[in-house]
Design a binder for these strands. Structure first.
Lengths: 229, 229
DNA sequence: CTCGAAAAAATGGTTGACCAATTTGGCGCT
DNA sequence: AGCGCCAAATTGGTCAACCATTTTTTCGAG
């Protein structure tokens, strides 16, 4: 996850293209410069450019036609509620963390009030997989699963939906500066203990303890990323 | 514009991959078959497959690593978030209220921390319009505006987006049993005072008071709808 | 038999050549 | 001068070979 230059390149290319469109004064229906011109002016390979164009096309911002060119689409997906991928470009890591701190402790509280026995079992399984992760990539996927298990334990489809939206943005936001000292989490990784405390509070049906445990956990994550503030 | 076979191929490939993931019983962290296997079993070119994988990766459903393979990410958009209209059918009024109680007090707290002077002015205007509403319909629209002004005051695009999703579901959920005794809210309608208290706490930059005031307000709304519980 | 190094195989990623669709320009005819 | 045809140029799309990373297997030494 730390070495994905292609994905970073693609996101940067997407951003660069958006700048071209907005700063170039292109309006819907206008034809953009050809691919061969763009790779020259933007200084990227055609492969990277095409990936970015694919993404913009999929988001509905442009349309392309062989032999004709690439055109700015009519305003559709780009206005209104904003697509998740666009949102990802706008959200700062701090905003993301604040949003998590706003939603997830309250969800942990709801989980403590509403979790079924099955949901608790799933939480335990997810917690265990986090501990057993062999790489940071795997850990992060399992961490996601743990948090989602909390959202599922709320037994509230709307909260689950909001969590998933939040989580998608979270995954799309670039965390470029995270430096890892090891291949995988240490056995005494802070989050393991914090997961345990969240789990214990939910299992004990203690809403305020669950709320506090999740808040502490996310506070630790936040402090690790940003330093205390 | 009418002939985009390549885009159709890509969308079909995306759908096919999602079927592979869900029907194949893959859970987060699981490794998918290699690209060369998938092009064989799905009967598509590698180019098409890679475009689809690019899209799934960008949507956060999978992650890929050279030499390792392609892995299912934590639950993506396809499983949790359904469309808003589907969600509106599934959400119970109680779940909706619990979701509001989970998110909006925390947003009020963020608003108290982050509101600009302009945002406070907009809050005041929205509060005033609530008081001046001539019908319940108008009151509810202005009430919406007041709550959205709180979300805007958080200065966090992600929280605003989550609020908007929540609010769309809220507007779509049928509140069929609400009986009104009057044409419009009484001048001593509880929510007027509660709006005032939310506004005052945000203006005073008092996060815990804002959190408590919003929680009280939504608690009143909830009690009115469901009785105390 | 075990271990470590090297080679081979497997994995996703990139590149340059070529292909398919469209536009442009040149030429000949009226 | 205008029109039509055709070749060349331009445009986005595809392909096979190759590249970079990781895993697995093989081989030789102790």
């Amino acid at each position: 996850m730390l070495t994905r230059p292609d994905q970073t390149d693609r996101d940067e290319a997407i951003a660069a293209l958006r700048v071209v469109i907005s700063d170039g004064g292109y309006v819907p229906g206008d034809r953009l410069p050809s691919e061969r011109e763009l790779i020259g002016s933007l200084g990227m390979t055609r492969n990277t450019l095409r990936k970015a164009l694919d993404a913009l096309e999929r988001d509905g911002e442009i349309w392309r036609h062989v032999g004709k060119g690439t055109f700015v689409a009519a305003h559709g997906a780009s206005t209104g509620s904003g697509s998740l991928s666009q949102l990802s470009q706008q959200v700062t890591p701090v905003q993301l963390m604040r949003a998590r701190l706003s939603l997830e402790p309250a969800m942990a509280r709801e989980a403590a009030l509403n979790a079924s026995d099955k949901a608790v079992i799933r939480l335990k399984q997810a917690r265990q997989k986090c501990r057993e992760s062999a790489t940071w990539d795997e850990y992060e996927a399992q961490d996601d699963s743990f948090h989602r298990a909390v959202a599922e334990a709320t037994d509230n489809v709307l909260l689950l939906s909001l969590f998933d939206q939040l989580n998608q943005v979270r995954r799309a936001v670039a965390w470029n500066n995270v430096v890892r000292k090891s291949k995988r989490p240490d056995p005494d990784h802070t989050s393991f203990k914090e997961h345990d405390e969240i789990l214990a509070a939910i299992e004990a049906r203690n809403p305020s303890a669950a709320h506090a445990a999740m808040r502490t956990h996310l506070g630790s994550v936040s402090a690790r990323l940003f330093g205390d503030y």
